[in-house]
Simulated assay, not measured.
Amino acid sequence: MATKVKSKKVTDDTIISMYMDYVLENEVVPKSVYKFCNDKGIDEAVFYENFGSIAGVQKSIWTKFFLHTKNLLTSNKEYDSFSNKDKLLTFYYSFFELLTLNRSYVLFTLENDKSLLKKMEQLKGLRKHFKAFASELIVEGNAEKSLKITKHNPRLFSEGAWLQLLFILKFWMDDDSAGFEKTDIAIEKSVNTVFDVFENTPLDNIIDFGKFLFKEKMA
């Protein structure tokens, strides 16, 4: 049996790190909290002080990915001066850079779960935080518009942005290009497309994006 870890040293981050190590080392999700705690040498009571279940750990990991990315952005003194498009672009680039550092875990946890509902359950916390972030961007954009008719619905925009994030996530998972450069292109083109639609500018970028997706799909 593993040596018990002193409870005062065990935090939610400690458990998350242990969990990610566990699934990558064993290539399986722990069958129970007892099994996980026994293998990692922590008391079940300590686990339950931080999480209610294994599923709770899984959801928290994605929430932490978001919060770490958001904190990284807001720590940049120039971030507030960015346009909304640049804020979204910067978020995506930073978020997927973080996912790349944890790619083995992300691929395992999403590819291992064949059920779409279970995948979405893991991403619940991420969805909530990301939609709030996207809503903030559209509210900021609306504040700059004088005509009500040109303003956009934050609820609809945030849902569209969430679907966009899921699309890019799937693209990144399938991307085998060096340095995931194709994902970077997909991010830029998809964000440009969204903002072109909202600003009612010509559809050149939409057509360009469509051609890019077709080429990648058929390659």
Results as ranks from 00 to 15, higher is better:
K70V: 12
V57L: 02
Y79F: 15
N84L: 09
E78S: 14
Y93W: 08
E49G: 10
D113E: 02
Y48M: 05
N71T: 05
E49T: 10
L123N: 06
E140W: 05
S104N: 11
L72T: 15
L126S: 00
V106C: 06
T90W: 04
Y105P: 04
L98M: 09
G56K: 09
S81W: 02
S53R: 06
H68S: 09
K119C: 00
Q58S: 05
K85M: 12
T100P: 02
L88Y: 08
L98I: 10
N112G: 01
F51M: 09
F133L: 13
L89V: 09
K131W: 02
E78R: 12
N76W: 09
E140N: 15
R103I: 09
S53I: 00
H68C: 06
F82Y: 15
L73T: 13
S53E: 00
D80N: 14
K131A: 11
D80G: 10
F130K: 06
D80Q: 14
D80A: 15
K64Y: 03
F47P: 00
N50D: 06
L116F: 07
L107G: 03
F47D: 04
S60H: 12
F95V: 04
K64C: 07
K59C: 05
Y93E: 14
I54W: 01
K114R: 14
K118P: 00
N71W: 02
A55N: 07
D113T: 05
L89H: 08
T90V: 01
F108G: 02
E111K: 11
R127M: 04
K128C: 00
L107W: 01
E136T: 15
K64A: 08
T74L: 11
G125D: 11
T63I: 04
L67T: 15
S115C: 10
Y105A: 03
E97N: 14
